[in-house]
Design a protein around this nucleic acid. Sequence first.
DNA 1: GCGGATCAC
DNA 2: TATGGTGATCCGC
Length: 873
Amino acid sequence: METETDTNGDTDHPWQSYHTVYTTAKAGMDGVDKEKVQRVVYEMSKGSKYFQNEERKDAFINHKIDNLRVQCAKLTQADLAYYHKVADRRIVELEASRDLSRIWLHVDMDAFYAAVETLSNPTLKGKPMAVGNMSMISTANYEARKFGVRAAMPGFIARKLCPQLIFVPTDFKKYDPNFIAGSLDEAYLDITEVCKERNVKSEEIAQELRAGVYEETGLTCSAGVAPNRLLAKVCSDINKPNGQYILPNERMAVMTFVSSLPIRKIGGIGKVTEHILKGVFGINTCEQMLEKSSYLCALFSQSTAGLGLGQTDAPQVRFRKSISNERTFSATEDEVLLHKRLVELAEMLSADMQKEGLCGRTLTLKLKTAAFEVRTRAVTLQKYISSSEDILKHAKKLLKAELPISVRLIGLRVSQFNGDKCSATSDPTQKTITNFITSGDVNSNCSSFPDAADHDLVSNAETDLSIDSGQTSHLDWRELFDGNHSSDVDHQSCTVWQNGVEEVQTSSNDAKSSHYSGFTEEQFEGINVKNGSNLLEDERLDSCCQEKTMLWLNDYKCSLCGIELPPSFVEERLEHSDFHLAEKLQKEESRIHQTSVPSQSRGQKDRITRQSNPKRQKLSQKEGSPKRYRKQETENGEHRQLNKHHHQPPFAASHSLHSKPNDHHQHDERGSAGQVGRSSGQRKTVERGWWKDSRNQPNERAETSHGREQREEKPQGKLDDNTFQRRDGFSERKDDPPPTLRKRPAFREKKIPMDSGDANLAATLAVKSSQIDHPHPPERKEERSSNPHHLDRPEKQFADDRAHNKGEARGRRYGVNDSYKGRDKFNGRQGYGPGNSRTEKWKHDLYQEVNKDPIPQKNEDDQIAKLEALLAS
DNA sequence: GCGGATCAC
DNA sequence: TATGGTGATCCGC
């Protein structure tokens, strides 16, 4: 932790450079003796494995800072002049995009879990209290925060800071109703129209809303009002707890407000970025960022940086891209134990996936070593999987390759879902979309999708939340969740795939002897064949839905445009339907626009459209989505089968409408889970000789000797129960997550030309000067700015002080079909390791992708990228 | 497509 | 004694 960066006399106060994360200006931390907190945290942490890992990371960051300083010093006058120009130009562009017409309100519950606990146990009131345990705190009430206790802090440190601190174990069941209500303990509302219609000030709306929340729940919340979401969120934090702050929709007010705003308050700027910006440029506030804009432009890449701008349009529905499970336990290298964990995780993950009707083809194993070093290992399969057997099979391979290793956490993640290729609109809704085309009634068909109604209901509710609110108090929309949204609605195997899974499950229940236990791809295909009847049923369902739409005349010809597509062209037909749907919607939309109040911003029009056409939200995701014929999936029967998710079962549809299931475990305002599960011994199955499928592997010995000792003697059972309780307790919440906002890091480092020599520099400058007249890079790959500078120079390498796994496992390869890659990358990986930390320059990119995007639904990236310029002109 | 890292909550 | 879980994204390779 002490590097050249910390040269300002820290030697006597080593804690000063440690763990600023606990002392950064968070709500309720104002009167805290930060020096003391830092010292305590440092003293309590010093020497631990965790601490050592933090040191390692800090050292790397400091190293980076030093590097950046050097790069900065190397900038020539010409460089600076150029970047000054670029920065100015971008600032002008951003300023032009400033939208002060909207009024956004952000509500945020105060110390949510702590508040709930106090509600059920009023004796806690006024006393410092934390929800969590000695290992980890989920959240702390404001009394405790006065002592420096805060979320994500280990309990034993918190107790040191505040000996009288009362610990309350996390009780997820207790939070459930509230949790479902809020899903997140925060919400954004566009109250522009409400203010207009009721002719009231935003201040009053906020007041009203907070009073309503308190009345209904007995919980306090804080609110912020501002012209965009980013600022509204910042504002809601200002007078926490139980307060509000209104930032007027005036440019000067915004400018003044933002100028003194610490950069850390901006979403996307975290501990590391803050550290770097401070370390390199001495930047603390947004104003300082503006002052250094030339340097930022020169050294940072990409990003919309937190210059104080924010989105003014409604958040969009998003889709889950991955699903994962991970558990921490006492570090062990006992392979039998590790395998047991893996089995449990695979089962949990599989269950979660099936609950949501997900199949994915990329499996990622995550390990955290006893030294807190995190590794991930991934494999992308040719088939989509969701069964625990399949997951386990591949997870085992991934883990095996890392052995021997001492691990304190294992995680499994599945991504690349079947249906992702459908881009924005994931398959689940296609059936209903198709129906909508001609029927206009999503619910009239496909009665086998009972959730459809709820689905829409929620959808509308969420849309409305962004639309009017106000009278629709925060609490009203909870009711919408009170219906039957539990996922146990059960996914009565609408697809062959589901059936396949179920079959596997049942057969694997009794014994390993089941021939399904291996469940290879070949066997899987066999299952498909065997379940041909299901397949037929599914197709019948599909064609049934299509027929009812009356789109296909004689089941062959499109009634709208005459194009001919045989029934077997399922995908193509769907796409074709979507095309007509989009067309129809566009017409509708333009009609609405014409009849609605003129001269509105586009964002507003969008809202109006959605309001008047509740189905649009779902449908709109179709727009702008590219062709979605899926070659790969029609290559063989299996993919065709899997593709049945295309016609999603209800649970999947329900899931998919609501983006990122962020809901589940957001255990405090910082998201602390406090689920320090010393996982699980509840599931049976330690498969003896589990590595046996491979030769060199252990090992009965492990089971008989130290393996058993560790398994039984270790107090791992401490929290065993919680682990699964938690899952159960939260499983319901996974069903209907609300739309969430995309978070985007404010800065991205970008490799730029680090002049390894004058020649390179000259070349660089040449490119720069050619660019100056074309500030828009000619080709931008999505939101990534294309950097003309591609020169690179390896930089001083970092010593790798970590004990890595033995080389023996490296380079091992697996099946030919599946791409197990990256094994050898491990040695030379990037990051803190020795491998290839390279010269990196950072560049700051202020471009707003949003402005270039005529399609409202396009990529959230673009929308998030919308920031409001803060400049002193 | 993989792996490391950062971030939010 | 002891430092979480889920999901997303970016970047370099």
